[in-house]
């Protein structure tokens, strides 16, 4: 039995050994968490754990005791996320969209730590999310617009 917070809700769960957080979240209908490579390579399954972006495919549910997990579904109403989403739309930073939740999680984590990140810091935050459509140009541009306005204020 393991206890942790998921999107603000305290959970006490008993899962099969070896169940990853990615599998667990998608079974609960949290489909913003995408199933990509299963090896920590693509970042599509990114979630926030204690405010840090991590790959949920590499986390075993049984190792999450006392942790705080957030997915995009739990960030509804979050001002930073709202600004990022709007800039992604306005800038045209979404093409196929499969990596977009991972990018938004990675950038939310960055903006929680630093409200005015530089382009280099934005690129570093996005390095763990593979995108085959955008070439990162538009997502970086969108994130920079949020950064200039003071991301989490």
């Amino acid at each position: 039995m393991v206890e942790f917070l998921l999107n603000g809700e305290p959970l006490k769960v008993d899962v099969e050994p070896g169940t990853t957080l990615l599998e667990f979240l998608r079974e609960r209908g949290l489909f913003s968490v995408k199933h990509g490579c299963d090896h920590g390579e693509c970042g599509a399954c990114s979630v926030l754990m204690d405010d840090l972006a991590v790959n949920s495919c590499l986390l075993l549910v049984n190792s999450l005791d006392g942790r705080r997990i957030e997915t995009l579904e739990g960030l509804e109403g979050d001002k930073t996320l709202a600004k990022l989403q709007q800039e992604f739309l306005d800038t045209g930073a979404v093409q196929c969209g499969y990596c977009t939740p991972g990018m938004l999680i990675a950038l939310t984590a960055l903006l929680r730590q630093n409200s005015n990140p530089s382009e280099e810091q934005i690129r570093d935050a996005l390095a763990g999310v593979l995108c085959r459509c955008t070439g990162y140009v538009k997502p970086v541009e969108a994130a920079l617009k949020v950064s200039v306005r003071g991301g989490n204020r």
Binding site: M49, A53, V54, L58, A106, A127, V129
Partner: peptide, 13 residues
Amino acid sequence: ATASCPSRQLRNR
């Protein structure tokens, strides 16, 4: 450390 592991998600773990 960054060169060894460019993904921040991985570096966090």
